[in-house]
């Protein structure tokens, strides 16, 4: 009979891959969220249109199929991606599409008087976004971004289906080899949960940091 310590080395190897994708995919998602979220607020119609197509396409189709496209279909069209690259791009673009709406919503929620004051002072639209509106919108973005980041952690389980040795992949391997199904998946659940708790801790710290100096008139916590 195997105990949990026999399983852990392999599962932790998988967890490292899971964390890598969560961090790198999260970084890509953040970049895409700002690019497409601000893009949807652009004055240029083509930029708005492009951003909207990106958001609706990646939000409106299955993340698993997006990964399959990147990993199994693209090579047939002549583009072969390393599975890790496919995973980061696929999940980053997918979560980024949700993040774009977070960015757009938070910027639009900045009180109108801020926009008017910035305009009265002669700021260009880009300056207004960068110096006045976005900095004030960021505190409102952090909690939903935190949500999405944890969603991303859990979505990384999908990459086991494009041959990546993540936590879920290793669990499946172990299960086939040992048939200790309850123990293995119990441990895996716990590891995902522990990772999520670490992320929650990081998000809280960021929340506290960006909230400083800003009085949004909301509830004090």
């Amino acid at each position: 009979m195997l105990d949990v310590f026999d399983l852990l080395p392999l599962l932790l190897t998988g967890a490292v891959v899971t964390v890598q994708i969560t961090v790198m995919g999260g970084a890509l998602a953040l970049v895409m969220a700002f690019a497409a979220g601000l893009g949807r607020l652009s004055r240029s119609a083509p930029i708005r249109w492009l951003s909207t197509v990106y958001v609706e396409f990646f939000r409106g189709t299955s993340a698993l199929i997006q990964l399959f496209w990147l990993f199994y279909a693209l090579p047939l069209l002549g583009v072969s991606l390393d599975p890790m690259v496919a995973a980061v791009i696929g999940l980053g673009l997918n979560i980024g599409s949700y993040g774009a709406e977070v960015v757009r919503g938070a910027v639009l929620a900045v009180p109108r008087g801020q926009y008017e004051a910035a305009r009265a002072l002669g700021f260009s639209r880009a300056q207004m976004l960068r110096r006045i509106l976005v900095p004030q919108a960021i505190p409102a973005m952090v909690p939903p971004f935190g949500n999405l980041w944890i969603e991303l952690l859990k979505a990384t389980a999908l990459v086991s289906l494009i041959t990546l040795g993540d936590l879920t992949f290793q669990a499946q391997m172990l299960r086939t080899a040992t048939l200790q199904t309850p123990l293995i998946f119990g441990t895996v659940l716990f590891i995902y949960f522990a990772l999520a708790m670490v992320m929650v801790f990081i998000i809280r710290r960021i929340e506290r940091r960006v909230g400083r100096g800003l009085d949004r008139g909301g509830m004090r916590t």
Binding site: G113, A117, A120, I132, Q136
Partner: peptide, 13 residues
């Protein structure tokens, strides 16, 4: 032209 607003509209950050 400069303008002063009823609600001040200072930049809180």
């Amino acid at each position: 032209i400069g303008m002063v607003f009823q609600q001040f509209n200072l930049f809180p950050h």
